[in-house]
Design a protein around this nucleic acid. Structure first.
Lengths: 300, 300
DNA sequence: ATCATTCATACCTCCAGGGTATCAATAGCG
DNA sequence: CGCTATTGATACCCTGGAGGTATGAATGAT
């Protein structure tokens, strides 16, 4: 009934992922026999068989599969604890804000402005990452707070919605479909998407119309859009701030709206995180109240 | 650099809770010097000071407080992984349902009924626990799914609301306040509550009017209510199913409604859990529809 | 100033985690 | 059907580190 150790979990995950003791041992930088022994001890300790193994094949049992899931989240929790403690103890702690470039609803400057007036504010660091990487960054303790697009994998996170926006499709102005004012997803079947587009997170969202094409930033994406190589789903605020002659934005009838939200670890207690969340909600509320006229940031 | 170990986290939590190396060591069943050394190594490893210590006083630094929180959740995750793996590997797995006796909105029989018809259903086990213990039971891997009253500490859990009910106060029929039809919390200031009453979870809910009195089950509580020793907050369904001559139920104007919800671990993938959630939501939906039709004569 | 308390240091012991060598079982093949 | 290659399990050894004991050092109390 002794407790599990991180080492055991890490070894187990390696074997579960490789389904091969030799390769797993190599990946772990150790020899195969002690790995086999550790897994055997783990099974004894849990009173459960985790792998069905013959000399030719290793596969997970049911219990092994549930442990794989839980072990991963437990390991995440442990490494996050270390990261956050390291960061909290650093001489000049900062607030690390995870977001995807350009996906901030245009609110980021104002949020940072409002946030910086809070006495609890720490200097902000922007942690940029690909689409969908923000929640993981927060979970892993690489960031303290994040701006995310819902729906999102929010295990371990609390979040507060900021604003909901229509999602438009960006396409070449010369595209035949651009002549129409209303499209639906079916019309886009077969078009290429940039990798990591907002509407393409693979979980609850719309079925991807076609293949994806690698592109990392907006200017790359827009060049591809202009040439008609891809189409691209963009929230309204992104579309507004990126008017381009060669690009037409069109609403898509059956594409769900996306919601920008601020997210933080469930158990966050840092005043700086609280201050940022407060600022974000406040700014979003204002922006919403002032409807869609224009917004004065205007402090000095 | 190197990863944290469960042992380090456990030792750290013990010291952080005791704020005393000697007592912490005793609690851990070990001598004090290796404990001190382990904490020192942990600090070196993280590059962070976790405790301010003099020979007369030990207290947490900011980084220490951050780590305490994260360490607790990480340890929870680890022990939950072990418990769930053990359970999943057991020969006859069952679905362990955590709930507080009598707090099921009267739906439990129907839910179990509906659930049992699902082909994925496992035999149910009821895991009874005090108020507020259910989420922890799920987090710790002692239960697979829970019926909880919101608001609730749902770190690590997903949940789906089943039904929202008015909360009434139960008091002795002879109580002067029972003569009135509408009360507010202020009227109840100074009254005793049973320990673990729904409206007394200490987080987001109402300020507790007064002291609490220990009582573990409904019949004990009702005897105390009848004698006027305590008042008691009860959801409508509980009130309905427990009409007692000596007890009067009255609405409280400024008491927020409570919501019964079904909750499960974020990463649950067990078909049995899914079946139970499905059954619960379905039954609640039906019950709700029924209630609406009956409510045409309704109260305000 | 003295003492008691309590955390840190020094040093020792021993177990367990890791390595090497080898066995054993199975699949593939002629 | 027997040979071989692959791969997980077993046997055994060795070393690092976790834990114990003895003791020092700092601080608050009297």
């Amino acid at each position: 009934m002794n407790d599990l150790e991180v080492r055991q979990l890490r070894y187990f995950v390696a074997v579960a992922e490789e389904l091969h003791f030799g390769r797993a041992a190599e990946r772990l930088g150790m020899a195969q026999p002690p790995l086999s022994r550790t897994i055997r001890d783990l099974e004894r300790q849990l009173g459960v068989t985790l792998f069905e193994r013959t000399t030719r094949q290793v596969k997970l049992t049911g219990a092994g599969e549930v442990l794989l899931r839980d072990a991963r989240t437990a390991l995440e929790a442990v490494t996050a604890a270390a990261r956050r403690a390291r960061h909290a103890g650093s001489a000049a702690p900062r607030l690390r804000i995870a977001l995807k470039a350009d996906i901030d609803g245009g609110l980021l400057p104002q949020i940072l402005d409002a946030y910086s007036t809070d006495p609890a504010a720490l200097p902000p660091d922007l942690v940029l990452g690909g689409f969908g990487a923000q929640p993981q960054a927060v979970r892993d303790g690489l960031a303290d707070v994040a701006l995310v697009l819902r729906p999102v994998d929010d295990r371990g996170l609390d979040s507060e919605p900021l604003l909901t926006e229509q999602v438009l499709v960006a396409m070449a102005a010369t595209d035949p479909l651009a002549a129409r004012n209303q499209l639906c997803l079916a019309d886009l079947a077969g078009r290429s998407l940039p990798n990591g587009a907002p509407a393409d997170d693979g979980r609850t969202s719309s079925p991807p119309p076609g293949v994806t094409t690698p592109a990392s930033n907006l200017s790359e994406i827009f060049s591809l859009v202009e040439t008609g190589s891809i189409v691209f789903f963009a929230p309204l605020s992104v579309a507004r701030r990126n008017p381009r002659p060669g690009v037409a934005y069109r609403p898509v009838s059956d594409l769900p709206n996306c919601t920008l939200a601020v997210a933080w670890p469930h158990d966050a207690r840092s005043p700086a995180v609280a201050a940022f969340v407060r600022a974000a909600v406040e700014v979003a509320h204002h922006a919403h109240a002032h409807a869609e006229t224009h917004m004065h940031s205007g402090t000095a």
